[in-house]
Amino acid sequence: MRNAVVGSAKAARSVTRFGRAPPVTKNLRKDPRSGLPQPHVPIITRQYAPCRLEDYYYSTLQDDLMYLTYKHQSGDRPPPRQIRLTFDPNDPYSKFRHNPPVGGSQIGKKPAPPSTPENVVRLEKISLHTMVKEAVANRSSLLPAIMQLRALTGETHQGGGRHAVEGIQIVKGKKSVGGWIRPGIPIGVKVDLKGQAMYDFLGTLVEFVLPRLRDFNGVILPPQSSSTTSPSAVSGVVSFGLPPSAMVFFPQIEVNVDSYPKTYGMHIHFVTNATGQGAQDRARALVSGFQIPFLRR
C-alpha cells in the first residue's frame, strides 16, 4: 500500500518543470576566443512547442489535397516517345560529332509525378526577399531591412546550433545592368524559413496582416491564356509581394514602428514540393488551404 502511494507520487512528478541543476564537478573547456564554456556535444534546439498549422496540415489539409489533386493512372506510364535518333558513341558516323540536346527546352514538358500518398503537395519553405535600391549607393541602408526581417522571423545564422539555418542573408548583384546594378554589390536581403518558424510566419501573415490590408482582395492569378509550360508554372512556387505600408501590421513590427527609419516591402515565396506540369496549380491549392486568398482578374 505504502509502495503504491510512493509510486504514484513519483509518477505525478512534473515532466515540464526542472529541479536544481546538477552541481558542477569539472569545469567545461573554455573557448579561447570568446571565453565561453564549450559543451562536450553539439547542442541543437528542436521543435519547442506544438505547431498548430502543421497539425492542421496533417489532420485536415493533406487528405483534401490528395483527393483534389489526384490524377488517375492505370498501369505504368508509356515510355517517352523517341522523336529523334539517339546518339550512339560507338557508331563511327557519330563518334566524334557534336551531340546537341534536341527538341528545345524540356523544362515545362516534364509530366507531374504519379499521385501517391507520399508526394501530396506540402510546404517546404517560405522565402522572404527584400530589395533595397538605395543600397547600390550606400550599403548601410540595408540595415533597416535586415532589422525588419530579423524582427519578423527571429532567424539567426546557424541559430539553435543547426548548421542548415542560414539566418538573414545578403543578396548580391549577379550581373551588370547599366547605371543600376553591378556584380557583387549587396543589393538586398533574404531569409528562408522552414519548419516551425515557417508555420509561425504563415499564421501571423494570414491572421494579422492580410485581413487588415485595405486594398488587398487576394493574390492576383495570371490570365487563363498564360503559358502552362513556363518555368514558373511548373516549379511549384507561389509568390506575391507586400508593400512597405503592410509591414506595420505585423505584430513584431507594430510594437515599435518608430524604431525603424523606413519600412521596406518584401516578396514572399511559398516553395512547395510540387513539380512537373500543373505544379503551380497544386501549390496554389495548398497555399489557399492555409487561407491565403486568390483572385482572378
Binding site: 534546439t45 521543435q47 519547442y48 506544438p50 541559430g159
Partner: peptide
C-alpha cells in the same frame, strides 16, 4: 511531447541571443 517541448524550450532559452 510535453516533456520534450519543455526540454527543448529550456535549451532554447539558455542559448538565445
Amino acid at each position: 511531447e510535453n516533456a520534450y517541448y519543455a526540454y527543448q524550450a529550456r535549451i532554447r532559452r539558455a542559448l538565445h541571443n
